[in-house]
């Protein structure tokens, strides 16, 4: 099995969709010692779509996201990002190439304000030197104002003006999730990875979040890959769904099709042996 799979280029999965392929996962396998987290998975993400990755617990969804944003390095297979094959990539490289993400458990700086947290999302886009920034004059100040403006636009977009100056640790969970989304958006990503954006939210918060995800997709044209357990949300939001189970891909296609797939139903409900 230890065959090094060569990049196969833009090979469509049999379906034709408008827009070019932004990210392509090709026969990727990932294992930790003897545990195979992901086995020979291939799928692609087309620019401008909302792509959902679903599956039962332990199916390898989060591992998949970690592979995409360079946190894990697959032993086998290739990842093609904007037409370029990459094998190993550090998370910060992925970030500077336009991949941003949020986490399953909120990973914000709890003692910092919402504003400061979102400003950290601009870090990669700051160009003035350390000394200039310490002095905060001339070009550094101009740059900071420019970044602050962008951040304010995101605050306005996600309607979190009221918590601008509130330390994140004091916010309710639903709002923290929104701040995390704001920080990811501050990077102006091309691909946004959302790891269970609705987990632990009440109905109203879920509705708000769904609204924001759709707005991000439509207004900024950001491509979104999301992991979510709430099937209602997945069916409403996503253009295409890929289903994983025990590290394997068991289905891939539009929501209605996936919903009717017998393998998917079996994976979720279990089958008698």
């Amino acid at each position: 099995m230890n065959v090094l799979v060569k990049p196969t280029g833009m090979q469509a999965d049999g379906e034709t969709a408008p827009g070019e392929v932004l990210l392509r996962i090709d026969s990727v396998s990932l294992s930790f010692g003897g545990v195979r987290a992901i086995t020979n998975i291939s799928f692609d993400i087309i620019k401008g779509e909302v792509r959902a990755i679903i599956g039962p617990n332990g199916a390898g969804k989060t591992s998949m996201l970690n592979v995409i944003n360079g946190f894990y390095h697959p032993q086998e297979g290739t990842i093609t990002w904007r037409g370029k094959v990459r094998r190993k990539m550090k998370p910060y490289e992925a970030a500077s190439h336009g991949i941003a993400r949020t986490f399953q458990n909120v990973a914000l700086f709890k003692g910092m304000t919402t504003l400061d947290n979102i400003m950290t999302g601009r870090g990669l886009k700051m160009h003035s030197g350390f000394l200039w920034q310490c002095l905060r004059v001339g070009p550094a100040l101009r740059e900071e104002i420019e970044h602050r403006r962008k951040v304010e636009e995101i605050i306005d977009f996600l309607e979190i003006q009221a918590i601008r100056k509130t330390p994140v640790g004091r916010l309710p969970y639903g709002l923290q999730k929104r701040v995390e989304l704001a920080r990811a958006l501050a990077m102006e990503p091309e691909l946004l990875l959302l790891d269970e954006p609705m987990a632990g939210m009440n109905l109203e918060e879920k509705e708000d979040m769904s609204r924001f995800i759709l707005d991000v997709n439509q207004q900024f044209g950001t491509t979104i890959a999301l992991i979510e357990h709430d099937m209602g949300v997945v069916m409403d939001l996503s253009d295409r769904v890929v289903v994983l189970d025990y590290g394997r891909k068991i289905a891939d296609g539009p929501p209605e099709e996936v919903q009717a797939n017998q393998d998917v139903i079996d994976a979720y409900l279990g089958v008698s042996h």
Binding site: E152, I155, Q161, R164
Partner: peptide, 11 residues
């Protein structure tokens, strides 16, 4: 003289 103000983008 100012007639109306609105806080927009924090300003």
């Amino acid at each position: 003289r100012p007639a109306i103000r609105e806080k927009d983008l924090g300003i």
